[in-house]
Amino acid sequence: MAQIDIIFSGFGGQGIQAAGKLIAYAGMLENKHVSFLPSYGPEMRGGTSNCHVIVSDDPIGSPILNSATVVMAMNRPSLDKFEKYLEPGGILLVDSSLVNRRPERKDIRVFEIPATQIASDLGNLAFANIVMLGKLIHETGAVSAEYIEKGLKKVLPERKHYLIPDEMKALKIGMEY
């Protein structure tokens, strides 16, 4: 792993920013260089909330991504918008519970995970982002599961720490999917 450029995208409320912050925190705790940039401009309109995350062995240049090595799309507008951002050989993760079309590109690796369905089966829809994140770290090696757990302790307020065992369970399901 030299540098992984990730675009997280979905509806507001799906935990897109939270997933981005979590992997950035985990990477930083793992002594990697990280940056997290939320969308705040006009790109927020039109059904997507997104953020750019870079995890790198070296100091990071621009935190804004013009292309990505990984795209996590949690709704249809996100897939429509960001599929083209992927570099050839890049990784596309799609929440297939919510996205009703197949990716078009043939020069990328596609993983379709019914993350919202899995989260629903687990009894908490808010875990869909963690299921997706599990697959993401499994396929990219961006950070290890151990550091995601450490990151959760930093990102979540103390009163929500009781959720961490369940979050880790959801992460494992994603990793093994």
Binding site: A24, M28, V34, S35, F36, P38, Y40, P63
Partner: peptide, 10 residues
Amino acid sequence: DGMLGQMMEG
């Protein structure tokens, strides 16, 4: 600039 204000880093 807006990038520096909005971004998170260690």
